[in-house]
Nucleic acid binder design. Structure first.
Lengths: 106, 106
DNA sequence: TTAATGTGATACCTAATGGTATCTCATTTG
DNA sequence: CAAATGAGATACCATTAGGTATCACATTAA
């Protein structure tokens, strides 16, 4: 897929997919192992894995008849980059808020 | 809306909405001004603003017949929090990658 | 080599999403 | 006051998304 920023944000927009990301952060897992953790069919989990793969967030290693899914740290980069664009903005605004609250408290 | 993490991630999952966020980071804007910047109707932009509002990313100030939309820095917090959970993971994995590449280069 | 296991692929369904067209309402302005 | 402006609400439409059921295929185990 071509737009990595869009695909990565889209991949993170679903709660099941964020859950998968959290599980894979602990350890690599097959689709079977992942399916055990969610209340849905293997086919549904497979679709989520495809979206995560399109977003560059996971990769798959074929091992015999098993497929080991693993987190790909580089895939998160476009998301972190996009968000970092606002760092200064958030900081400034949050500091303004904080100062305003402190003035209130006097 | 109740699940802020989900609503915020969902709000950021659409390219138009991320564009709106970027515009509002520069300056507050009315829906009319925003609509001028996108190739869609005011009604469509309004829907995006509703999603952004549900995500806690913007707030609206009524001024006469105008509505001023402004970015809400606090709304991004759930997203940044969720992502920060992986900071260590990304760092470790990216360092492993970097070291591997450096070993290759010798 | 037959059976069991792990997985992928496809067809299908429903609900959500992103968009338009249109109508209404409140606030300015001439 | 009348007209123009800025905006919200709703009905409607096509496409996408998330899910299931089912079938097919490769690999491992008996």
């Amino acid at each position: 897929m071509e737009n990595q920023t869009q695909n990565a944000f889209r991949a993170l927009a679903d709660p099941t997919r964020r859950g998968i990301v959290q599980l894979l952060a602990v350890q690599d897992m097959t689709i079977g192992q992942l399916t055990d953790r969610f209340d849905m069919t293997r086919a549904a989990v497979k679709k989520h894995l495809t979206v995560l793969s399109d977003g560059g967030l996971i990769s798959v290693e074929v091992r015999g008849r098993e497929r080991i899914n693993r987190l790909e740290p580089l895939g998160m980069a476009p998301v972190l980059d996009w968000l970092s664009y606002f760092d200064q903005f958030w900081d400034d605004r949050l500091n303004s808020l904080k100062e305003a609250v402190e003035r209130e408290e006097k």
